[in-house]
Design a binder for these strands. Structure first.
Lengths: 156, 156
DNA sequence: GCAAACTAGTTGCGTTTGCAACGAATAACC
DNA sequence: GGTTATTCGTTGCAAACGCAACTAGTTTGC
């Protein structure tokens, strides 16, 4: 993938760097007898500091199927990482909250990520890196609206 | 995923933006009766302008298992997108080359990507975007070496 | 030259994933 | 108030993935 037109390559770069980082981090991530996987950590990342999210919210923010999210959450629940409680005001939905173990898992992950992120960003200026994160966050936001609207404009 | 510490979030941002872009692009990508998927396009992207790559090379650059690559390439071959020819000098390996249809598929994908990338980068300065691509490419390179060496330093 | 070590690609197997259909609970409409 | 739509979560199913075992071809070392 030599440097040609950048625009067409964001999709491949993000997917590949994402897989690289996931692999390198997950192979270090045995935590109290639990071996999390990429989907698990993506969910935990959203739940840190955000009690009371619904499964649907997590499916949208992680860009994963709600069935996939349901199964991953069930695994995380039986591993003691989080709790799911049926909402009393709307008994269709379940409110999700990290347990203490879940918060410790997150701290553990952040700790393990340090070395990998250092080698990943060896020759990169902090300002450049911040710009990269900022751009990705805005791309994420821009496309978020696009994906949240399954069918609207051209339904005829 | 509100804006907290950026370093820990590159992994989630890349994975999510990658999935967003893959979804939005693939749903427009019916091409001459063939519906490519994310793995297919990742391989095609590497093969454009690069005749004679081996399956192993593609597995390393796309960060995918060689079995997965083998199966995806078989599908692409039977769809007429590429050809695999056993190397006469080393009959273990197969040299891969895009067909005319494969190159047309790539042009088609680039064409379809324009609109999506426009909305994705609406509020982003071109220089910022270039910096983002540049940083991602360097991260990719930095981690590439890390992954290509399965066991070396601490094998004791 | 021949056996051992290694490499490239294929295949089997269990897990994960997305899609679609379903059931339960709420909202909207008349 | 009761019927119809919608929404949230679960589950069945087929496809895709990673891992490991395997085959075939090549290289190394004696």
């Amino acid at each position: 993938m030599p440097g040609t037109k950048p625009h067409d390559h964001l999709i491949f770069l993000t997917n590949r760097v994402g897989r690289q980082l996931s692999r390198l981090l997950l192979e270090q991530m045995e935590f109290e007898g639990f071996l999390p996987q990429s989907t698990h950590m993506g969910l935990v990342a959203d739940l840190v500091g955000n009690d009371g999210l619904r499964q649907q919210d997590l499916a949208i923010s992680t860009i994963k199927d709600k069935g996939t999210v349901a199964r991953a959450l069930k695994q995380l629940e039986s591993a003691g990482i989080l709790m799911r409680k049926v909402d009393a005001e709307d008994r269709r939905q379940k409110l999700i909250r990290l347990t203490d173990k879940g918060n410790r898992l997150w701290q553990f992950a952040k700790c393990k990520a340090i070395n990998t992120m250092e080698t990943a960003t060896l020759d990169i200026e902090p300002t450049e890196f911040d710009t990269c994160i900022d751009v990705l966050q805005r791309v994420y936001q821009n496309l978020h609206q696009q994906l949240s609207i399954p069918q609207t404009s051209n339904h005829e």
